[in-house]
C-alpha cells in the first residue's frame, strides 16, 4: 500500500524514522515550516531553517527513496514579534522559488491575536499574488473554533484565493462542517494526546465522507507518531473498508491536492 503523509515535521525526527516510513510504504512526505518549540532570535535562523527544509531534508529522505517536499511560511507562534515578522516575510519569495516547495504553509492563527491575524493576512496576500497553494494551521484546543472562523472569513474576502487550493489543517469534529461549507480541503491530524485518534478520524470519514480530506501524522518534536497514517489505514481495515477506499484517503486525496503545484510528483 502506498501512502503520502501530507504533513510531517521530519527536521524533528531521527533518520531511523525515515527508514520506518519507507518500510511502511510512505514514500512521499510534505513538511510545512513550523514553530521549533522556541522563538527564534533573528531572521538568520529562518534562513537556516528554510535551507534545512529545502536542501538538507530532501537529501536525507532520498537515502530511503522518499520524496520530500516542503511548505514555506511564518508560523503564527512567531507572528507576535512584528519587527521580526517583517524580516521573515521579506525572505519568503526567495525560498518559494525552490524546486521542492509546494506553497505557503503552515500559516494561520494560534491564539487569535491581532498581530497573528495581521501576519496571516500578509501571507494570504502573498499566496494570492503569486498563485501559491496554502496550507493553514488552525489553533489548538479551545481556540480552534474561533480561529478557524476568523481564517475562513479572511479567505472569503480574498477573491483570488479559491477554496480548492487551500487545505485547512488540524480540523476536528466542531470545525469540519464550517470548513466543508467554505469548500476547501481539510486535514485531520492524528496525535496520541490531542487532536484526533485513528478511531475518531475514521468516524469523521463515516460522518463527513472522504471528499477533500487529507489525514496526516503531523509528527514533530512533541508527543506524536510518524506511522500514525498507517495505523489509521489499519483502523479502516478493522471496520472492513475496502483497500480502494483506503488508498483514496491516504494516497489519492493528498496526491490530488498537492498535484495542484506543478513541482509535485508522488512516488
Amino acid at each position: 500500500m502506498k501512502v503520502i503523509d501530507p504533513h510531517i515535521h521530519m527536521v524533528s525526527r531521527s533518520t531511523d524514522d525515515y527508514m520506518a516510513l519507507a518500510l511502511g510504504g510512505i514514500h512521499t512526505v510534505a513538511e510545512p515550516a513550523f514553530w521549533p518549540g522556541f522563538d527564534r532570535s533573528g531572521v538568520a535562523s529562518f534562513h537556516d531553517y528554510f535551507q534545512q527544509l529545502t536542501v538538507t531534508e530532501p537529501a536525507r529522505a532520498a537515502r530511503f527513496k522518499i520524496r520530500h517536499y516542503s511548505w514555506i511560511g511564518l508560523n503564527s507562534k512567531e507572528a507576535e514579534n512584528l519587527a521580526l515578522a517583517e524580516e521573515v516575510l521579506a525572505i519568503l519569495p526567495e525560498y518559494l522559488e525552490r524546486p521542492s516547495v509546494l506553497g505557503i504553509g503552515e500559516v494561520g492563527l494560534n491564539k487569535n491575536s491581532r498581530n497573528e491575524i495581521a501576519v496571516f493576512e500578509r501571507q494570504v496576500e502573498l499566496a494570492a499574488s503569486r498563485g501559491e497553494l496554502l496550507l493553514l494551521h488552525t489553533p489548538h484546543l479551545e481556540d480552534k473554533l474561533k480561529g478557524t472562523r476568523i481564517m475562513i472569513d479572511i479567505l472569503r474576502n480574498e477573491p483570488r484565493i479559491t477554496p480548492e487550493r487551500v487545505l485547512i489543517d488540524h480540523a476536528e469534529e466542531h470545525t469540519i462542517p464550517e470548513i466543508k461549507k467554505y469548500g476547501s480541503w481539510f486535514g485531520l491530524t492524528l496525535y496520541p494526546d490531542s487532536k484526533g485518534s485513528p478511531a475518531r478520524a475514521v468516524d469523521a470519514l463515516e460522518i463527513f465522507g472522504p471528499d477533500r480530506i487529507c489525514i496526516n501524522s503531523s509528527a514533530d518534536w512533541s508527543v506524536s507518531d510518524p506511522l500514525a497514517t498507517l495505523k489509521c489505514a489499519n483502523e479502516m481495515r478493522r471496520r472492513r473498508y475496502p483497500e480502494q477506499l483506503i488508498s483514496r484517503v491516504f494516497y489519492q486525496n493528498p496526491k490530488e491536492f498537492l498535484s495542484q503545484c506543478p513541482k509535485f510528483s508522488a512516488a
Binding site: 507576535e80 491581532r114 497573528e116 484546543l141 481556540d143 474561533k146
Partner: peptide, 20 residues
C-alpha cells in the same frame, strides 16, 4: 468540542505568554 471552545469572535490584543 463546542463546550470547551471560545465562542467569541473578537481577536485578543496580544498572544504573548499565552497558550491553549
Amino acid at each position: 468540542q463546542m463546550s470547551f471552545s471560545d465562542p467569541t469572535s473578537e481577536p485578543i490584543a496580544s498572544a504573548v505568554g499565552l497558550k491553549a
